[in-house]
Simulated scan of single mutants.
Amino acid sequence: MSSSSSFILFLVSLLSLQLIAASFGQLQVDYYNHSCPNVESIIRAAVERKFQQTIVTAPATLRLFFHDCFVRGCDASVILAKRNGAAEKVNPIDLSLAGDGFDTVLKAKAAVEEVPGCRNKVSCADILALATRDVITLTGGPSYTVELGRLDGRISTKASVRRRIPHANFKLPKLEAMFASHGLSLTDLVALSGAHTIGFSHCSQFSRRIYRFRSRNSIDPTLDLGYAQQLRNWCPTNVDPRIVVSLDPTTPWIFDNQYFKNLRQGKGLLTSDQTLFTDRRSRKLVNLFASNSTAFEQAFVTAMTKLGRIGVKTGNQGEIRQDCTRVN
């Protein structure tokens, strides 16, 4: 690469970081102290009710937040619906988002709107950010303060999702480049991947690792053979596409550091999981988080805070939607 090209890349990266910094400048932990002082307890109660109905609430909400922030920024655009069927949520990669994540936000929004002083005061984007923190805590993960003050976006297009969400077959270089474009470091990438300590994935997302790895009927050598056979039993070649498998085969519904211990045993379900251990650059972080749950939780909270700052809407860039599924 020429020196001029390197300088241009440096300027582009610097500009991106400056834009990120400017976008979250309006966020404050006490943003609703005067307009809706009990907003966190209102949302927490609604999320707890939803969680008691189905534990799927937790991974569904967490994944929804990630998908929202990585496409147009954290602006709840992923929740918007359009009559012409061209919204973000109908993109093929978003079709697997569980409905319970959307329902969590809608129920929490309804609870907030029932409080007279809070009506039309709290954005759907902030509700999603708070609900995400709450489901993490409900499954045993860390509690943390959430910066607030996001506005809701008015744009949601199917095409905007293209190349903005990591795929299950990505190796570390692609993942690292995608996260870096949002100002997220390698440590942030590995820590956020730890969210796969809860939740599930469809068989289609990893079938090539257990049936057609390079040649027919071969298994990805980075997979533990016993685990691979279990996956074959759960996901036969003629499996119903709606069948899902837990991302963490050991403690699938508990937010802990078991995910990283699994990677060290060759039990990362997706290619994008196992690559964190097979690649030497990220392996040391996997080993750290596997052996030190406090280090993982601290890194995760830092990464979630940075994630929540991506693409924050300000001024006339957004609004506070009365209905999270449509613009005002």
Score class of each variant (00 low, 15 high):
236 P>T: 00
208 R>H: 10
213 F>V: 01
195 A>I: 00
178 M>H: 07
228 A>G: 04
230 Q>M: 12
167 H>T: 11
183 G>T: 01
224 D>K: 09
237 T>E: 13
204 S>Y: 06
200 F>K: 05
199 G>T: 00
193 S>W: 11
197 T>Y: 03
157 T>H: 04
156 S>P: 11
237 T>Y: 08
174 K>L: 15
165 I>G: 02
236 P>V: 01
166 P>Y: 04
207 S>I: 10
229 Q>M: 12
202 H>S: 12
168 A>V: 13
193 S>Q: 15
158 K>I: 03
235 C>Y: 03
224 D>Y: 00
198 I>V: 15
195 A>T: 14
183 G>H: 07
185 S>D: 02
188 D>Q: 13
158 K>W: 03
205 Q>L: 04
165 I>L: 15
177 A>N: 12
158 K>G: 02
187 T>G: 15
218 S>C: 07
213 F>G: 00
160 S>I: 04
185 S>Y: 11
165 I>Y: 10
173 P>I: 09
217 N>F: 03
215 S>H: 13
158 K>Y: 10
208 R>A: 12
173 P>H: 08
209 R>W: 06
215 S>K: 12
227 Y>K: 12
209 R>P: 06
213 F>W: 14
216 R>P: 00
205 Q>G: 01
195 A>L: 10
234 W>H: 03
183 G>R: 08
231 L>A: 06
169 N>L: 03
218 S>W: 00
158 K>L: 09
236 P>N: 01
218 S>V: 14
185 S>E: 10
220 D>W: 06
194 G>V: 06
209 R>T: 04
206 F>D: 13
228 A>T: 12
162 R>H: 03
223 L>F: 12
162 R>D: 02
208 R>Y: 12
220 D>H: 05
203 C>S: 02
237 T>R: 13
